[in-house]
């Protein structure tokens, strides 16, 4: 698996092909459709990231020393965005996930999704992904 930074670069490159927002969002919607979906049995209240706008379920498990994330949402754009996060952070080690500082969001022009009013925004998703990494790391010890 490529390192987090490398995957980020690839994504930035991919998004570079689109010079208008329509193209970008069409791509995000496509990504949303291929999101690694969380198993129905994990779509529980506990795994729900709560917010005002759309619902997001996030689940993580260990495979060896790597973390595998799965997710779902009732909004497609949200699915696409979490799909991007999963592409970057899934199959990485807990330490790499905890220590990373993601830059691609800003660079592909999705900064507006970082704003606190988009309550299910990226901030809470990234935070939740890091929390999972921390929790699973202690399990590994």
């Amino acid at each position: 698996m490529a390192a987090i930074k490398e995957i980020e670069e690839t994504i930035v490159e991919e998004f570079g092909y689109y010079d208008d927002w329509m193209g970008k969002y069409e791509y995000i919607i496509e990504l949303g459709k291929s999101l690694p979906l969380v198993d129905e049995k994990y779509k529980t209240e506990e795994n729900l990231i709560k917010g005002c706008q759309s619902r997001v379920w996030l689940y993580a498990e260990l495979e060896g020393d790597k973390i595998i994330y799965t997710a779902d949402s009732d909004a497609i754009i949200t699915k696409g965005i979490i799909g991007l996060l999963i592409r970057v952070l899934s199959h990485q080690t807990p330490d790499d996930i905890i220590n990373t500082n993601l830059s691609f969001i800003d660079r592909i022009g999705l900064k507006e999704h970082l704003s606190p009013t988009r309550s299910n925004g990226l901030v809470s998703m990234v935070k939740q992904m890091k929390l999972y990494a921390l929790a699973l790391k202690t399990k590994m010890l």
């Binding site: 927002w21 969002y25 706008q53 009732d74 909004a75 497609i76 949200t78 507006e112």
Partner: peptide
């Protein structure tokens, strides 16, 4: 989903609540 609609409408300069 209303959220999806709201994000796209915003891109077109249209402010609605979702």
């Amino acid at each position: 989903h209303p959220y999806d609609a709201g994000v796209i409408l915003d891109k077109m300069g249209i402010a609605v609540r979702t």
